[in-house]
Amino acid sequence: MKHLNIEQKRPRIAVFDFTGCEGCELQLANKEETLGAFLDAIEVINYREVSSEKGDNYDVALIDGAITRPDEIERLKAIREKAKVLVAMGSCACFGGVTKLKNAYNLDEANREVYGDCPKETIPTMAVGDVVTVDLKLPGCPVSKDEVERVVQHLVWDLPLPTYAYPVCLQCKQRYTVCRFDMGELCLGPITRAGCNAPCPAGGLGCWGCRGPAENPNYEEFFALAKEKGFSEQEVKDRLAFFGGFEDVL
């Protein structure tokens, strides 16, 4: 493909799933209006949702899911060695995600609860970055396809990567949403990183913080205001723990 007479790079991309719901991978195949163009812009090396091709001559590895078994550590390290760019995609890969909730329990008990008499080998849940070096994090549950597209555009045309220092509230306000606090509900928007375009408050649900903390969030004030509005410390902590992004303040 040529643009402005320049031959366009086609990044060789592979997608790998670890422990998670695979929702992020499905998300990559979403947004039908640009799916054709998206797949044209890249070379799919390994991505089981859209192609049976398998190979290991990829440059970019998109990692979906958290690390919860010893064999996953080995597999992830091998991928890291081959990939020039490794992207942690989604909240599980970036923070550990929902599966990280198990770390609060005794692992053997958790194992029995889920697998009964056929326990599986398991370790405390880790984020991808706890095991290997991550070049780029795209938090979100699921990952935003828009953001993945921007990453591809960065790889192809060197367009700047999206960055959001500010919290969800800004994008929430830009949609004229009625604040969930005004409706008597809790919302993590004031401390959570924007970039999702605040779909949850707009849909009538407070933010659950799937994108993790904004840059330098004001936790102290947030805890104070949540308390003042009548939310218990436990309620706030449970929500902060949900996607694993707020470990530092728990």
Binding site: H3, A37, E149, V152, L159, L170, Q174
Partner: peptide, 22 residues
């Protein structure tokens, strides 16, 4: 911003605030 097929672009203006960290 550039479209995914790299055939169109847009220069986008978005309101911002002096209280935002960056």
């Amino acid at each position: 911003e550039v479209s995914m097929d790299f055939k169109e672009g847009a220069r986008v203006k978005q309101l911002y605030s002096c209280n935002l960290l960056d």
